[in-house]
Amino acid sequence: MKTLAWTAAVILAAACGKSGDKTESKPTETTGGSAETAPAANPAAFQKLKVTVNGKPVAMTRAFIKRVSPDQWRVIVSDQEGSCGELISGVTNSVKGSTGFVSTLRRHLKPDGGDEIAVTDFWTAGHPTSAKLGTAMVAGPTDKDAKVDVTIAKIVDEDNGRILEAEGTFTAIGCGDQPADDAGVPKDQHVSAATITVAGKKLDVKNAIISGDDLTLSTGPKDCSPTTPWSQVVIQRSAGKWCLRGTWFVDESCSAERAMPEDTVKDFKVTLGAQGSGKDGPTIGVTIAGTGKIGAYPITLDGTVEAIDCQKKK
């Protein structure tokens, strides 16, 4: 039996000091895998969802959703394929003649403090759509076995004469959280009383790393490896610039270089404190402070965090 494997990809990028951020999963066909029996379909769960192929309606019978990270979800909808086990494992048994889609949904923060959930990818027929992606809604937590109403705005996917359209609301079965892997995750828990406020939304800094003048602050896990696990907000100072990225943002934003007239982060302050050590290696206390703007987003830094010192000793 053929299976569709959604294998996690990791990219290395040089822009604004970014490296190893996790990305959307990419589907590839493989063989093997084991099927899991999905719950019996509830027709009422799909009454408000319209899926057509070349204008002909196709009734969906199953849908599953997992939380990949805070404010980020993955959903599979099909007439014959899918289960929680397959969605969590990343391997979906492919059924010949089936119709469906797999999509990632992310909450995006606007500079004015508003937010919306966006469809960031839409896979069908083994490829991502080239169509314009819209917004979505996720009503409630995606705990195991929860009934979760999901709404997607109209998406039209064209591929070699096959046109799939999907629009409306359906009820997906919650599969819980995607199990975390160890890539990019510190071995120790590092003390933090630091916060990042972006467009009025305050989040705790969970981890930080420092190497010379370069500093990375993350609201999720972060160690000295190139991999940066999913995080709502990541702020990085590198090569004289401050950059803002994370799942909350469509694109990365960076400040102007220091001493430029348009410098909007001149009030950001970083002060180094006591040194220590732990399972992740040397550490150093870092106090952050100041208010500024990165791209269109107002930012406030505050508090102290124990950062992992990633600078290699000579």
Rank of each mutant, 00 (worst) to 15 (best):
Q47C: 06
I65R: 08
G85A: 05
K222C: 08
E252N: 01
V270I: 14
G212Q: 06
V205A: 08
V205D: 03
G212I: 01
V185R: 04
L105E: 14
T291L: 05
D204Y: 03
S89M: 13
A166M: 14
V58E: 07
C84M: 07
T219Y: 12
Q275I: 09
C175K: 11
A136P: 01
I117Q: 07
P226R: 11
V156I: 14
E167C: 11
K202E: 07
D71Y: 11
A259C: 04
E306C: 00
D309R: 08
G168F: 01
D223R: 08
A5Y: 10
V68E: 00
A40L: 15
A125H: 01
D251M: 13
Q189P: 02
A125D: 05
A199D: 09
P186V: 15
V305T: 04
P57R: 07
C254T: 10
Q47D: 14
G114E: 01
K222M: 09
A153D: 12
G161F: 12
V75T: 00
T195E: 13
K206W: 05
M260I: 01
K201A: 06
G200R: 05
F122Q: 09
G273P: 11
K206M: 02
R245A: 09
Q178I: 14
A136M: 14
T304E: 12
L244K: 02
P226K: 07
D302K: 15
A35W: 00
G276A: 07
T169A: 10
L12G: 01
A5V: 12
K279R: 15
I155T: 15
P57T: 01
S19T: 12
V286P: 07
V119K: 02
P27H: 14
K50P: 08
S69N: 11
D157C: 10
A44Y: 07
G114L: 02
I288P: 05
R258L: 06
K269R: 15
G281K: 14
R162S: 05
G17F: 07
A180Q: 07
G55S: 05
M1A: 02
D213P: 06
V250N: 13
H190M: 14
W230V: 04
A153C: 12
S89E: 06
S78Q: 03
F249W: 13
P229S: 11
E116V: 12
D21M: 14
R107T: 10
K313V: 00
E81A: 10
K266W: 06
E257W: 12
D188N: 02
D112R: 00
T169N: 09
S211A: 06
A125T: 05
R62A: 03
A41I: 06
K314M: 12
A118N: 00
V10I: 00
E252M: 04
L4T: 02
V234L: 02
C224E: 08
S89H: 09
Q275H: 06
K269C: 10
T142E: 11
K18F: 03
T61Q: 02
N160T: 10
V270Y: 15
I210L: 06
P111S: 04
K50N: 14
T219G: 12
E306L: 01
